[in-house]
Design a protein around this nucleic acid. Structure first.
Lengths: 148, 148
DNA sequence: CCTTGAACCTACAGTCACTGTAGGTTCTAT
DNA sequence: ATAGAACCTACAGTGACTGTAGGTTCAAGG
């Protein structure tokens, strides 16, 4: 019924520092402690943490998760905001896929065209230094939109 | 023939701090300075920086770029290492795409199934709290393999 | 030549979501 | 009672930048 931090980490597939970190930044309430000062987690704490980890796996930021957690505690309120956050996340994921597919195309060309001889005629080095050699010119947009 | 840091940043589509940062970590040689101490970049510096930015856009780490730059200066050596780095990068990009596509599938399902009513019967909140509700179970692997 | 203000300079702190370390304490099984 | 695994706090480090404060230099116009 009551779990140590290590047990929780194992169940969630994260490590213990991460759980302490979530407590530290106030994403979850401070865990109950033993007399000796060690954390013990109940079933409800576990559910909250599962929610958080699953959301993280889907790429939501801790900030969005904070909102989603707050929403999940007010089950009588409209869920437009949760819906909007999910749609926004979906949009971001799709953008990242699109960008990564552009990178994939260029990298695949580079690798394929390399004769793997010496650097002087290495297609990889050549293309990196000269963007005009790309077959697919549009991978330069939004260089920072590809995280998680 | 000689550019200020602001001009270079504009041409490369990055900002000036980034260029100073590359110098600071020794990725590029310190730029030539005016009498007053301001940086001036020549054509060759520009080429190096273009190489770096293009590589970054393709998702290479600064560490890999360091190696690629070193290789590009030794044009008589074999290019296996450059080729290997590019192949590894391609592999990573493909893994990230695969993972993001799993996320996309789950998010799309969530969003589609939400009746957008109140939180109590919101599919988004429900699925986040209960991974078993996912149609696609395999998005939890390698949560940290999706950057850039 | 002088002034104005945009662009530059350094040094350092902050971002995100953790991860790692040092040095000490508690829990649990034998 | 003891051994050692697991826990605790506090703080520094990661990657690749981004932002800020407070001061200096440059180039154009008068």
């Amino acid at each position: 019924m009551s779990f140590s931090i290590g047990e929780v980490a194992k169940r969630l597939g994260c490590n213990v520092q991460t759980l302490r970190y979530y407590e530290q930044i106030g994403l979850v309430a401070p865990a109950h402690r033993t007399e000796g000062g060690q954390r013990r987690y109940g079933q409800k704490d576990l559910e909250h943490l599962k929610f958080i980890r699953h959301s993280r796996e889907l790429g939501f930021s801790l900030d969005s998760i904070r909102t989603l957690l707050r929403l999940s505690r007010h089950s009588d309120e409209p869920c437009q905001q949760a819906d909007a956050l999910a749609r926004e996340q979906l949009h971001q994921v799709r953008s990242r896929i699109a960008r990564l597919q552009a990178l994939e195309a260029e990298l695949a060309d580079m690798v394929e065209q390399c004769e793997c001889n010496v650097v002087a005629n290495c297609r990889v080095i050549e293309v990196l230094g000269n963007h005009d050699l790309c077959q697919h010119g549009d991978h330069h947009v939004g260089a920072h939109a590809v995280r998680d």
